[in-house]
Design a protein around this nucleic acid. Sequence first.
DNA 1: TATTTTTGTTGTGTTAACACAACAAATCGT
DNA 2: ACGATTTGTTGTGTTAACACAACAAAAATA
Lengths: 82, 82
Amino acid sequence: MNTEIHNRIAVFRAERGMTRKELAEAVEVNPQTIGYLERGDYKPSLELGMKIAAIFDVPVEMLFSFEPFESVAAALRRSGEN
Amino acid sequence: MNTEIHNRIAVFRAERGMTRKELAEAVEVNPQTIGYLERGDYKPSLELGMKIAAIFDVPVEMLFSFEPFESVAAALRRSGEN
DNA sequence: TATTTTTGTTGTGTTAACACAACAAATCGT
DNA sequence: ACGATTTGTTGTGTTAACACAACAAAAATA
């Protein structure tokens, strides 16, 4: 298995004003682990992926993708917000 | 990480008339691996979970869940199909 | 500015998630 | 019934995904 997985953990975390420590506690992993995931140092288990998605109350596919996510700016532009 | 993950891989596979070998080839894993997942012998990586969901064209949450899935019979009853 | 908090880096250790193989058992097709 | 195919079980091996720790650097706060 060598497909890269892109994630928006940092974006959702920033939006909710959470530190990595808080998110780590919420999903019961080591805070370092959140850092590794955000930096793409390693890829999560399904279990962890689903837990993080549940914390943010979004579908897994909104948080993780095989394709790079478009920038938040582009998404906002497209949504008509600005 | 010790939360059980339930899956409906076998259900979706049966619905599509796929063997484990075919599904394994589609997601590029060993056929045995599909068997392990279906029997709950081990839990998939997010990468593999997402790939399988993509093959079946369903959201990850429809294929995997922390809670036991209701029986297909119950779901069909509830959907009004029978 | 000084202190506290958060994030990044490096290192060590464990083990579950995979691969592969061999064989048995169950199921399917003729 | 028999052969082919699919699934289940067992065993061995590899390594990435985690934990934890220590420390440094960066950022935030007082």
